[in-house]
């Protein structure tokens, strides 16, 4: 675990750097796949870029809204670089909304665009695993297994390493585009289903799960629903028989 690197007065947040590298790689792969799918790659790139910008701005504004009096008193804090004052869920929703509106305005077709995003998103998931490894977040439950790592005052499952391995597997599967025809959205759904399955499996080893009444791990319930929905949607999106025969 190497969360910070002190360089004189600067404390560099290494997990943040891993995420930035993930964003860079994701944009690169998305652009490449968009070109392959004969989409306007500039529009796809801009859609992701503006989605990211809107996500960050939305996350900060949503956080500030929760503590309105504080931010009215010191409005310059809105521009502070502290990542702790971001509201992630609101940021993701804002980013998706803006990216969706942008894509619609530029007439980007839904399913090919989703397929273009799939390898980049899968690569970003690997970066998220690396960021978790560096920060010690998403840590495992205590274990006596010989490969347990000492973290947060206990020997724990190295869930961050499990996460990276699973994310790499998902990336390889999605990169190969094994389902349907490129551009029909099935490989994006495959990414969603495999990522949901990976989380469903991994969550059992986590030591920081959000637990619902009855001891159910929230992430597992949500992941199972996501996997089932994406599998159901796969068949719905699968081209009708007459189109299949033309292939």
């Amino acid at each position: 675990m190497y969360p910070y690197l002190s360089l004189g007065p600067l404390v560099v947040q290494l997990p943040g750097l891993a995420l930035l590298a993930g964003v860079y790689l994701a944009l690169l792969l998305t652009e490449k796949r968009a070109a392959h799918l004969k989409l306007n790659k500039e529009h796809v790139y801009n859609m992701v870029f503006w989605g990211l910008v809107a996500g960050i701005v939305g996350a900060r504004l949503a956080y500030a809204t929760r503590f309105l009096s504080v931010y009215l008193e010191s409005p310059l804090s809105l521009l502070a670089l502290n990542p702790q004052t971001l509201s992630p869920v609101d940021g993701i929703l804002t980013g998706l909304l803006v990216a969706g509106v942008y894509g619609r305005r530029k007439n980007l077709p839904l399913r090919p665009t989703l397929d273009a995003l799939a390898p980049g998103l899968a690569a970003f998931m690997v970066a998220v695993g690396v960021a978790h490894f560096l920060s010690g977040d998403a840590f495992g439950a205590p274990t006596d297994l010989p490969w347990g790592i000492y973290l947060w005052d206990a020997y724990r499952h190295p869930t961050q390493i499990y996460e990276v391995i699973l994310a790499l597997g998902v990336f390889l599967a999605v990169w190969k585009q094994p389902l349907g025809r490129p551009g029909d959205g099935l490989n994006f759904l495959l990414l969603v289903a495999l990522s949901g399955g990976a989380r469903l499996f991994l969550e059992a080893f986590r030591g920081d799960s959000l637990v619902w009444d009855g001891g159910w791990r929230a992430a597992q319930i949500v992941s199972l629903a996501v996997v089932l929905l994406s599998l159901a949607l796969m068949q719905k999106w699968y081209p009708p028989l007459q189109n299949r025969q033309k292939r």
Binding site: Y4, F67, T85
Partner: peptide
């Protein structure tokens, strides 16, 4: 929070 400076907004929130 590791590193700084923390903004006043962060501290108070």
């Amino acid at each position: 929070v590791v590193g700084g400076p923390m903004s006043e907004g962060l501290i108070r929130a």
